[in-house]
Design a protein around this nucleic acid. Structure first.
Length: 159
DNA sequence: CAAATGATTGTTGTT
DNA sequence: AACAACAATCATTTG
């Protein structure tokens, strides 16, 4: 067993290179850039068709928590209040309680990956070199496809 | 009037 | 591998 302090691959021990409670506002998600000027935003083009990221277990839990929170706190006004309360509560939950939320989040993730794949497939068409990959040809196409089969499987362990 | 912000954690995406 | 930004929400606030 050498490797002494190598921490080599950090098998156990929580690896936390950065633990900043607040990185100082990661970003305020800048959006809406339509001020006449066309800023050539190379790299990372955002497409309106790009599926949004799936909600994490925390968000799934939050959605329900929000309702409850507002129900018990109809006077609350800031979203931060629910966020803070939800965050603390979330940490208070046990893995078993988070399980159902994670399960839902996991499912959402699967669907998202499918969407992303389809989205990527559409984008994959042009083999042009990458300079101006933004081909702005707006025009309806893509006739329906993909039928969503709503499947609600409730697997609850019996106790 | 319209858009950003604030606050939470988790997950995905990019380098 | 590790960091960076974003996912929902909604009243408040600023330009």
């Amino acid at each position: 067993m050498k490797t002494a302090k190598g921490k080599g691959a950090a098998t156990r021990e929580t690896l936390k290179p950065v633990d900043d409670k607040k990185v100082g506002k990661r970003k305020a998600v800048a959006k809406a850039d339509k001020s006449g000027s066309k800023a050539k935003k190379n790299k990372l083009a955002k497409d309106p068709n790009k599926p949004k990221r799936p909600p994490s277990a925390f968000f799934v839990f939050l959605e329900e928590f929000r309702k409850t929170f507002k129900k018990e706190n109809p006077t609350v006004k800031a979203v931060s209040a629910v966020g803070k309360a939800g965050g603390e509560k979330w940490k208070s939950l046990s893995a078993a309680e988070k399980a159902p939320y994670e399960a839902k989040a996991a499912k959402r993730k699967g669907e998202y990956q499918k969407l992303i794949t389809a989205y990527n497939k559409k984008q994959e068409s042009t083999t042009d070199d990458g300079d101006e990959e933004s081909e702005i040809h707006d025009d309806g196409e893509e006739s329906g496809q993909d039928d969503a089969e709503e499947e609600d499987d409730e697997d609850e362990d019996d106790d």
